[in-house]
Each structure stands twice: as C-alpha cells, then as structure tokens.
C-alpha cells in the first residue's frame, strides 16, 4: 500500500487558483486544506479569499483563527458583516488580483448564483495567469454524471464569465466516505476530463480514507484533507466560540 509519503501533492505554476463548485462539492474544505498545505510546503505567503456569497453557515471565515496560526492570510467580511447573508464583495479582492505576494486562493461558493461575484471580477483576472478549477463530487445530485457535471460547469462559466482550466475530484459523503466512493468519483472526474478536454489537477480526500487504500490508482496529484468545517457535535474538547 502506498502511504502519504509517496503522494505527489498538487503544485501550481500559476499564482492565482480559483476553486469553484456547487453546494456540497467541498470547495471550502479543499480551499482551506490547499491553503494550509501550500503555506506549509512552500516558503511563500498564501492568501485565501472567502468569496462564498451565498452560504450562510460553514464558510471559510469560520476557520480564520486556525488558518492565521498557520500563516495563511484570510480575506473575509469582518465585524457585523461576518454573519451577514448579504453578497458582500470586499474591494480589496480586486487589488489582490492585480498584485499579491505568493499564492492567491479563491473559495468561490454556491453554484452559478454564487459565481456572479466572480463575474464582476472577471476583467481583473490577469489573462493566462490563473487556474479556474471545478470541484466535482459525484455524490451531489447535479454533478452525479458527466452530462450533469458539464451542464453545471457551463452554468458556472456563464455567470462567472471565466473559462475553467481544470478539474478537482473531491467526491465525498463527509463521514461516510470510503475508498469505493473515492474511486467512483475519480472515474467520473476522468470521464468529465475526457469529455471537456480539461486536465484533472488533483484528487482530494480525507487522509484517513486515503490511508486505507492503494493511492497509486490515482494518476494525478493528491491532496489529503483534514476536516475544518465541523458540526457542533463533532467538535470535541473545545469551548464555545463566544
């Protein structure tokens, strides 16, 4: 069995990575874990932008303290706006797209509606200098097959006015994920890759599940995940945030 040491982790030649997907694709977990990994692996700064304008709960901003402790800068609404269910687009994001140090990761929430925010910024993305990655989860109703995945990607690309440059296979069922589910999602992602011509950048999955399987079956990079977006009953041995 392959172990974590043999993983090829994701690496990027571009300095901007936008992670996009529908509800439940797991883009927030992927964004948070990718930012943590890059901050740890590379000696360069990482900035994570919370562009989830449609989900009221379980957003990147909930992991701010954890991220900042690891040296990741998080850009998200603060103060009274932290809890708002309003589409707040921070003006500094435009500036970050023009100029930033190190890697810039954007966590773009919620399907085509959520990606309208990205559309208003589409002109600011430096041509050829960013990756726009679709996060696929074959256990979500709208991306359960190739046709549904392509249709969802077309809707998102339409409202974000940015073409996709690659795919991420993040098929999961939260705590019910197993190796068979990962493989099912990987097969779908390869089929979507074949149909769309977009490369599969990496597979992301819970580290505990990866440890149970032969990861050499994945021909691409792998990002092991540690869950950050926990439900209240999963938060053991910690006190209330307030």
């Amino acid at each position: 069995m392959a172990n974590a040491a043999t993983f090829r982790y994701p690496s990027f030649s571009k300095r901007i990575v936008a992670l996009v997907g529908g509800f439940g694709s797991g883009k927030t977990e992927v964004s948070v874990n990718l930012a943590k990994y890059l901050a740890h692996a590379n000696s360069e700064p990482v900035t994570l932008v919370d562009l989830d304008l449609v989900n009221p709960y379980f957003r990147t901003r909930e992991a701010i303290a954890e991220m900042e402790a690891l040296g990741v800068r998080v850009v998200a609404p603060q103060g009274g706006q932290y809890y708002a269910d309003l589409p707040i687009l921070l003006p500094e994001i435009k500036g970050l797209l023009e100029t930033h140090e190190g890697m810039l990761i954007l966590d773009v929430g919620g399907d085509a509606q959520g990606c309208r925010a990205l559309g208003s910024l589409s002109g600011e993305f430096p041509p050829g200098q960013y990756e726009m990655l679709m996060i696929l989860n074959s256990r979500r109703p709208q991306t359960a097959d190739v046709a549904g995945s392509i249709a969802t990607m077309n809707r998102i690309a339409g409202s974000s006015r940015l073409p996709f440059t690659g795919l991420v296979s993040n098929t999961h069922m939260i705590d019910e994920t197993d190796a068979a589910i990962l493989l099912e999602g990987y097969d779908l992602a390869r089929a979507v890759s074949g149909e769309s011509g977009l490369p599969l950048f990496f597979v992301s999955a819970k580290r505990a599940v990866l440890n149970t399987m032969d990861t050499s079956v994945f021909a691409c990079a792998i990002l092991p995940l540690t869950r950050s977006m926990l439900k209240p009953w999963e938060r053991k041995e910690e006190t209330s945030g307030s």
Partner: peptide
C-alpha cells in the same frame, strides 16, 4: 441553554 445563534458545545 444558549441562544441568538450560539450553539452549546459538548463541553458546555
């Protein structure tokens, strides 16, 4: 009880 959107933790 906690309220206003604050959810009690298992520890509480």
């Amino acid at each position: 009880g906690r309220t206003g959107g604050i959810v009690p933790t298992p520890n509480e």
